[in-house]
Design a protein around this nucleic acid. Structure first.
Ligand SMILES: NC(=O)c1ccc[n+]([C@@H]2O[C@H](COP(=O)([O-])OP(=O)(O)OC[C@H]3O[C@@H](n4cnc5c(N)ncnc54)[C@H](O)[C@@H]3O)[C@@H](O)[C@H]2O)c1
Ligand SMILES: NC(=O)c1ccc[n+]([C@@H]2O[C@H](COP(=O)([O-])OP(=O)(O)OC[C@H]3O[C@@H](n4cnc5c(N)ncnc54)[C@H](O)[C@@H]3O)[C@@H](O)[C@H]2O)c1
Lengths: 220, 220
DNA sequence: ACTTGTTTGTGAACGATTTCACATGGGCAC
DNA sequence: GTGCCCATGTGAAATCGTTCACAAACAAGT
C-alpha cells in the first residue's frame, strides 16, 4: 500500500518489519560468536529466502563482502542505526489501566531504548500516585507536559471511546509517533505515524483460520 | 507471502484483515440505523477504495444488490460467519503474569466470542489460586487439560525463553491456533496457525519512522 | 413495460513486492 | 601476483495485490 521513500529508493513496509527480525537474529548470532554471516544463514533463521535478505539490506547500502558474507557486529549496528534502536526514545503512556500497567512494568522496552518516562490518566484516584517509580499525571496537562518532557513516542492505552480525543491532545503536543492499543481506527494528522496493536483482530484472524481450515503458515 | 486458499480462490492476508474492519464498520452502521450500505460508504469509513471493498467481499460470494448496495445486517452476519466470530471459541492462556493478567481481565474478548476458560502457569504460588474467577492450573498438565477442555485457541504470555517449549506442549494438545506475545519466532507444526503480537517491533517501526522522517501514512 | 439511474461483480491493467539468475568483485591459497 | 572460489548486489522476470473501467443487474418512477 505505501512504499516509503528513504533517500531516493522506496522501501516496503514489510522490509522494515523484516529489519527488526534481522536485528534480533544478528544479536543472537553475535552472542553465538559468529563473526560473519551469509544471507543464506540469515534467511534460514527467519524462514526467508537469501535473495530477500540481500534485497532488503541493499535498500540501505552495501554492508556485505562478496565471497564472505556480512560482518555480524557491524551489520547489527547498521541495522540498529536504520531502525533507530541505537538511541533512546522518550515515551509517554496514556491510560494506566490493565494494559497500561503491564506495559509500564515491561523491562524489555527500556532495554531497547524505549524509556517510558511519563504516565497520564484521568482517574483522580490514580493521578498523583506513583506507579513503578513514575508519578501519574493528569491527562488534562498532557499537551504541556509532553512538550516539556520532550516526548517523542506516545502509547495510547485508554478505552476505545476516548482514544480519539487523547490522540488529538497527543498530536497537539507535537508527538509524531504513536502506538495505539484501542481497537478503533484513529484519525491522525498527515505527519504522524501510528501503529495499531489490534489484538481482537488477531484473534479474528485465528478464528478465520480455524473456520477455513487454513493449514500452517507462520502468517504475519 | 502467503495467499490463502478458500474454496478455489486465493485470498490475501490483507483481505482477511480488512474483513475485520468491515465487520466493525457494519456493526456501527447497523447501530446508526442503516439498512443498506454501498461499497463507497463502506470504503470511506476505512479510508479504502470502493473497488477494494467489492473485490474483498467478492472472494466469498455475492452479497450485494446492484444499484442498491449491501444489506447491512445480512452482510454483517455473513462477514461474521466468514471470520468465525458468529460462534464462541474456547481459549486457554498460558502465563498469568503482567500481560496475561491484563488479557484475562479484558471483557471485549469474551464479548466477541473468545472465552478464556483455562489459565496455566508454572509458578507454585499462582497454581491453584483463582484469578478473575478462573483457577490457575499447573502448566505440566497443559496437554491433558486443554484436550479435556476442548481448547481451540491458545494465548502464549510466558517469558520468551520458555515460549518454544510451551508452544510444543500446546501443539501436542492439538490446538491449531495460537496468539503469541513472546518476542521470538516460534517453530510451529505445519497445520498450526500462529499470529504474533510483537510490540517491540511496532516500537521499532515507529523509531524507524522518526529517524527517517516518514510523514503520515496510517501504516499497518 | 420501458426507461433511467445507480451500484455491484469482475476481467484486465497496473503497481508493488518477491524471486531469479548472473555478473561483479573481494578474499585466500599458492 | 595470479587464479579460483564464493557470496554479494542488482537488473530482469515472476508473482502477488490493488485499482480501473465497464457490462450486467436491479430499483424505482412513469
Ligand atoms: N486489557 C487488555 O487485555 C486489552 C486487550 C486489547 C486491547 N485493549 C485496549 O487497550 C485499552 C485499555 O484497556 P484496559 O483493559 O487497560 O482498560 P482499563 O479500563 O483497565 O484502563 C484504561 C485506563 O485509561 C484511563 N482513562 C480513561 N479515560 C481516560 C482519558 N480520557 N484520559 C486518560 N486516561 C483515561 C482509565 O482511568 C484507566 O486507568 C482499551 O482501548 C482496550 O480496548 C486492552
Ligand atoms: N508485559 C508487557 O507489557 C509485554 C509487552 C510485550 C511483550 N511481552 C511478552 O509477553 C510475555 C509475558 O510478559 P510478562 O510481562 O507478562 O511477563 P511476566 O514475567 O510478568 O509473566 C510471565 C508469566 O509466565 C509464567 N511462566 C514462566 N515460565 C512458565 C512456563 N514454563 N509455563 C507456564 N508459565 C510460565 C510466570 O510464572 C509468569 O506468571 C513475554 O514473552 C514478554 O516478552 C510483554
Amino acid at each position: 500500500m505505501c512504499p516509503i521513500p528513504v533517500g531516493i529508493k522506496r522501501v516496503a513496509e514489510s522490509t522494515i518489519h523484516r529489519l527488526s527480525h534481522y536485528w534480533r537474529v544478528l544479536i543472537a548470532l553475535e552472542k553465538e560468536g559468529y563473526k560473519t554471516v551469509s544471507s543464506r544463514e540469515l534467511a534460514q533463521r527467519e524462514k526467508l529466502t537469501p535473495a530477500q535478505v540481500r534485497k532488503d539490506l541493499s535498500f540501505f547500502g552495501s554492508f556485505g563482502t562478496r565471497g564472505l558474507g556480512y560482518p555480524v557486529t557491524q551489520l547489527k549496528e547498521q541495522v540498529s542505526a536504520i531502525l533507530g534502536t541505537n538511541q533512546t526514545w522518550r515515551v509517554a503512556l496514556v491510560g494506566v489501566g490493565n494494559m497500561g500497567s503491564a506495559l509500564v512494568g515491561y523491562k524489555e522496552f527500556s532495554r531497547q531504548g524505549f524509556n517510558i518516562i511519563k504516565l497520564f490518566d484521568n482517574d483522580q484516584r490514580k493521578i498523583g500516585s506513583f506507579h513503578k517509580g513514575l508519578i501519574i499525571s493528569d491527562v488534562r496537562n498532557l499537551e504541556v507536559e509532553i512538550k516539556q518532557a520532550g516526548i517523542e513516542i506516545a502509547i495510547i492505552a485508554v478505552p476505545s471511546a476516548v482514544a480519539q480525543q487523547v490522540m488529538d491532545e497527543i498530536a497537539k503536543g507535537g508527538v509524531k509517533a504513536i502506538l495505539n492499543f484501542a481497537s478503533v481506527k484513529l484519525k491522525v494528522p498527515g505527519d504522524v505515524c501510528i501503529r495499531n496493536e489490534h489484538m481482537s483482530m488477531e484473534l479474528e484472524h485465528l478464528s478465520f483460520a480455524l473456520v477455513n481450515k487454513i493449514t500452517g503458515k507462520q502468517c504475519e
